[in-house]
């Protein structure tokens, strides 16, 4: 079962998020609420602020103003509370080069305080699901890009997070593994987890997600839902250009 969250708290709530770099404002008072079971796409061209938005949500970037709550926990004040609820796969995941896949996942389970037997079973299931069965003893520095990403995905899903954030996580995955991962995410969503996903595969996002946060240019944003989302779904590539 997914990890517990504060009563009534949304998996993700962002209000008035503001971030400025030297070259100008990237995020201007962005607001987004992600409800249980939802899959929200994060779309926009390169440099529009997608990675900055994800960074502010996952506490890898410090917002200038605004509020981020993950299952009710502020990642900048209650890091442990937010970490218990969040599963994040960065675009360039960090894996200890000296550890094997099994060692890394064992460490992740222990650091998260998971039950050893249950997490071992879940690790085995996730590795088989992602096509990594048999690679348990491989050192992380010897993994291919796709295998490294799969390992990071397994590490992010191990604790049954309520809020799953995937930053270009499908890149480098073979088709079978990607389809299995989507099925797994569907099962997690059915159990109440929510997904925020950034990808350049716009057709997939249009097909799979329920809403989107669109960042057309730095400093501008809109939430695509209802008619606007349906219009975007019909021609996502054209809509992204427009």
């Amino acid at each position: 079962m997914p990890a517990m969250m504060a009563d009534g708290a949304l998996p993700l709530a962002v209000r008035g998020l503001r971030k400025k770099y030297r070259r100008g404002v990237v995020l201007a008072d962005v607001g987004l609420e992600v409800r249980p079971g939802e899959a929200v796409a994060l779309v926009g061209p390169n440099g529009a602020g997608k990675s900055t938005f994800i960074g502010c949500v996952t506490a890898d970037r410090l917002p200038d103003a605004g509020e981020v709550r993950i299952c009710g926990a502020d990642p900048f004040r209650d890091a442990a509370g937010a970490a218990a609820c969040l599963g994040y796969v960065p675009e360039q995941p960090y894996l200890y080069p000296e550890l094997s896949v099994a060692e890394l996942l064992r460490f992740v389970a222990a650091a998260r305080g998971l039950d050893a037997a249950a997490s071992a079973a879940e690790t085995g299931r996730l590795l088989a699901l992602l096509g990594l069965a048999g690679a348990e003893g491989t050192l992380c520095r010897e993994l291919s890009q796709g295998m490294g990403r799969k390992t990071a995905i397994a590490a992010a899903l191990l604790h049954q997070p309520r809020m799953i954030v995937l930053d270009e996580a499908l890149n480098g995955l073979d088709r079978t593994s990607a389809e299995r991962l989507i099925a797994e995410l569907d099962a997690r969503r059915a159990a109440g987890a929510a997904v925020l996903i950034s990808s350049h595969d716009l057709e997939f996002l249009a097909r799979w997600c329920t809403r989107a946060l669109h960042l057309p240019t730095p400093g501008t944003w809109r939430v695509l839902e209802g008619d606007a989302w349906e219009a975007w779904q019909r021609a996502p590539s054209l809509a992204a250009q427009g």
Binding site: T58, A59, D60, A79, A80, G81, A82, A83, A84, L86, Y88, Y94, V108, A111, R112
Partner: peptide, 8 residues
């Protein structure tokens, strides 16, 4: 970042 995200 990896360790902070684990909630250590």
């Amino acid at each position: 970042a990896f360790l902070r995200r684990l909630g250590i």
